[in-house]
Computed example of a mutant assay.
Amino acid sequence: MEKSTREYLEVAQQDSDRVTRLTIPPPLPEAVHSFYELFAIKGIRLENFQPGFISYCFIVPPRLTDRNGNLAVGAVATIVDKIGASVLYRKVGRRMHVSVDMSISYLSTAKLNDELEITTKLIGIKGSYKGILVVLKNKSTGEIIAEGRHSLFALPSSKI
């Protein structure tokens, strides 16, 4: 018999216990990121930087896995959003870009402690609109975990 909506949405005790064990450090006064951004992107290392292309390395931590031990789809979406936008920021003080559209193809799963290679590439610019491609790949097998296309927009700078 299928679960009712109420049963499906109930939080299991093991999930509740998992959340209560999280240690959340107090935010630094100068931090401009939210808790969730720092929670999701902590531990990502820069490997290669070229204008318009950046490569990162990441080992899947327990905090970003679902109850089956796979990298959570929400964590993948946050990585596509935050790491994808990083290809646009080369100098402090540049105007902020906002996400307009994001689509992600989930092609495989990554397990706890898998080493991932994350590449982000600027694929096009049309005025203040920019398109980015982000690929998460298992470093040891070469298997693509997810591919995200991310569009961002920034207001044009004033000509005054």
Rank of each mutant, 00 (worst) to 15 (best):
L133D: 12
G142D: 04
S16L: 11
F153D: 00
E47I: 03
F49P: 00
Q13V: 13
R95D: 10
V134N: 03
S4A: 00
G127V: 03
H150L: 04
H33N: 11
A77T: 08
I54C: 12
S158K: 12
L116F: 03
E143S: 05
V87D: 09
P51M: 04
C57W: 00
I145S: 00
H97W: 04
T141R: 09
V19Q: 10
T23M: 07
S34Y: 10
Q50G: 03
G43M: 04
R18T: 08
A85L: 08
A85H: 06
E10M: 15
R149M: 05
I83N: 04
L71A: 08
D101T: 10
Q13K: 14
A146M: 00
E2Q: 05
I125R: 12
R94D: 14
P27H: 05
Y56W: 12
D114R: 03
T65W: 00
N48L: 14
P51I: 05
S158L: 04
D17F: 10
P27N: 08
L116I: 04
N113A: 14
T20M: 11
I160D: 14
S158N: 09
S103A: 07
Y89L: 08
L38G: 06
L122H: 11
N138Q: 07
K130I: 10
Y89Q: 06
A146V: 07
F49A: 11
K91L: 12
D101R: 12
S4P: 06
E117Q: 11
G124I: 07
Y106G: 03
L112F: 10
E10L: 15
D15L: 10
E117W: 01
